[in-house]
């Protein structure tokens, strides 16, 4: 299926947006490492939806102005983007890691969402759970830290780091640090807002996530009233490592949400 690419101009800079598929819009927000390739997970979602993948401000080929330097700012720009791309219809929103955190910040601000899918998502802190540190390890150590199967990680990281994209790796790391260095990958305030997440939410988590251990996924599911799907044989990038299982869990969630939304034929008769 064809992937189309466009640049849209917003108040705070320009966004690169890639799209694939047709159907109701599903926005996917990438994690702290950015996303350059188009992984199988997105292909699978695009079989049913129009999958929309922006580079977050300051990542990949999107620019960041001085006013887009915090996760709140990312959320604001993404809300602007949704207003621009889908002014009339609510969207399905999915986010991984940092992108999940941005999605949560959007959700607590009353974004027009049909559903929320959080994949190994950042954003919260859980007492007693020590996170992994992808900022301090060498590139050679990343695959084993990010993936249950280091070989899968090595292949993916290599595919992501094309020569053309090489400088983006450093740019992405800088932007990720700017947003999430301290507090590391969370905002203490967000937890107090999570009860405002009213959209149907599913949390999907790699069983062997060493960056954000599974206990964080459990806590996030509990705090947002979400269902939790644990993905076996997967680490922090479960949607790369177990694309089929993650896509299935995501799509099943979206189907459930649609079913809940669509009134039964005779239910509308009453009013």
């Amino acid at each position: 299926m064809q992937i189309t690419e466009s640049i849209i101009e917003l108040e705070n800079g320009s966004l690169r947006i890639r799209r694939q598929g047709a159907g109701t819009p599903l926005v996917f927000l990438h994690g702290a490492h950015g996303i350059n390739t188009w992984p199988r997970y997105l292909e699978l979602l695009a079989a049913r939806h129009e999958v929309i993948v922006p580079d977050l401000p300051g990542f990949g080929r999107s620019t960041a102005s001085k006013t887009t330097t915090r996760v709140h700012d990312m959320a604001r720009v993404m809300l602007d983007m949704i207003d621009t791309l889908s002014p009339d219809a609510a969207v399905d929103l999915a986010g991984h890691c940092l992108g999940g955190w941005v999605a949560l910040e959007m959700a607590v601000r009353g974004a027009p969402l049909r559903s929320l899918t959080l994949l190994d998502s950042a954003g919260i802190h859980v007492d007693g759970i020590r996170k992994g540190d992808f900022f301090i390890v060498s590139p050679g150590e990343l695959p084993a830290l990010l993936f249950a199967d280091p070989q899968v990680g090595e292949d993916w990281l290599q595919a992501e780091t094309t020569s053309e994209f090489e400088s983006a790796v450093f740019q992405n790391r800088q932007m990720a640090a700017r947003l999430a260095w301290s507090p590391r990958l969370f905002d203490p305030e967000l937890t107090r807002w999570l009860r405002r997440v009213s959209v149907p939410t599913r949390v999907i988590w790699g069983e062997h996530n060493q960056i954000l251990p599974l206990a964080m996924g459990e806590a996030l599911a509990q705090r947002t009233g979400a269902s939790l799907q644990v993905i076996a044989a997967a680490g922090h990038l479960a949607f790369i490592e177990q694309a089929d299982a993650c896509a299935e869990a995501t799509l099943a969630h979206l189907v459930e949400v649609s079913a809940r939304r669509t009134p039964a034929p005779n239910a509308s008769l009453g009013i």
Binding site: I136, F170, R173, R178, W181
Partner: peptide
Amino acid sequence: LTFEMLFPPGYLSPETAR
């Protein structure tokens, strides 16, 4: 010191870091 300790992301400009 390891490279990542000496030059954490953003300590240098992305281009210098590269």
